[in-house]
Simulated assay, not measured.
Amino acid sequence: MDIAWTALTLSLKVAAWATALNLLLGIGTGFLLARGRFPGRDLLDALLTLPMVMPPTVLGYYLLVLLGRRGWLGEWLQSHFGVNLIFTWQGAVIASTIVAFPLVFKPARAAFEAVDGQLEQAARVLGIGAAGVFFRVTLPLAWRGILAGVLLGFVRALGEFGATLMVAGSIPGKTQTLSVAVYEAVQAGQDESANMLVLITSVVCVVVLLAAGRLAPGRIARH
């Protein structure tokens, strides 16, 4: 039971960090591609969407090549800062962030593209600066799509398995998330532990979906 709650706590921490990072990255890249017109925009969009269709184990392999001790980034971090991201919960955060990123980025871009440009132009005519237009006009009008993407990204990060297992491993109490703990319990023939972990995972997912329903703009407006 202690292993289950430890895995749940770690999963929630990893998913929260991954969602926070994706909120910033998703809004930034979504707005850039929604408003920007530059060569290679379609290629950049395809590359940013790639984690949605690429097998998580392939992403995990790429991360190992990049962040491993022999990888150019991993070697640089180790030699300059003494930082090793492989087999750490921070590595799990990076893996979950990349896997869940398209689920935040794509809805954010669609939400920004749906904002009426005339409203933004009217704000500029009234003397509001670019930052003011974004935070006072564009972002409030796009928040429904952004919220939907953030919730999807959180659930995806919470259930991430393949890339996380390859990058962070399965160290109980340190890197073993709920999904990885379920896999280890099934592999070891520990049916009771597996059932408990699956039940906890299912309850958490239902709670998140209920929270998403409560946070829906239509529900807020009615209340």
Rank of each mutant, 00 (worst) to 15 (best):
L23K: 04
L23R: 01
L23F: 15
L23N: 02
L24I: 13
L25R: 00
L25P: 01
L25W: 01
G26V: 01
I27C: 13
I27Q: 01
I27T: 04
I27V: 14
G28T: 11
T29H: 03
T29M: 15
G30H: 13
F31T: 09
F31E: 09
F31S: 11
L33K: 08
L33W: 07
A34T: 07
R35S: 06
R37F: 03
R37P: 00
R37M: 03
F38A: 01
F38K: 05
F38W: 11
F38G: 04
F38Y: 08
P39L: 04
G40K: 06
R41H: 05
R41E: 14
D42S: 13
L44R: 06
L44Q: 02
L44N: 06
D45M: 12
A46R: 03
A46C: 02
A46G: 10
A46D: 08
L47E: 02
L47I: 14
L47H: 08
L48T: 03
L48W: 02
T49D: 02
T49P: 00
T49I: 13
P51L: 10
P51S: 12
P51D: 12
V53F: 10
V53W: 03
V53N: 07
M54W: 04
M54G: 08
M54R: 04
P55D: 09
P55T: 07
P56S: 04
P56V: 04
P56T: 05
T57K: 04
T57M: 07
T57A: 12
V58K: 02
V58Q: 06
V58R: 05
L59Q: 11
L59S: 05
G60H: 09
G60M: 10
G60A: 12
G60F: 10
G60K: 11
Y61W: 13
Y62T: 00
Y62D: 00
Y62H: 00
Y62P: 00
L63G: 02
L63Y: 04
L63A: 07
L64G: 08
L64W: 12
V65A: 10
L67T: 09
L67I: 08
L67D: 09
G68A: 11
R69T: 12
R70Y: 08
R70C: 00
R70S: 13
G71H: 11
G71D: 11
G71L: 10
G71T: 11
L73E: 01
L73Q: 00
L73N: 02
G74H: 06
G74F: 05
E75D: 15
E75Y: 13
W76K: 08
W76C: 03
L77K: 07
Q78L: 15
Q78W: 15
S79I: 11
S79A: 13
S79H: 13
S79K: 14
H80N: 14
H80Y: 09
H80I: 00
F81G: 00
F81R: 02
F81L: 15
N84D: 14
F87M: 13
F87P: 03
T88N: 04
W89T: 10
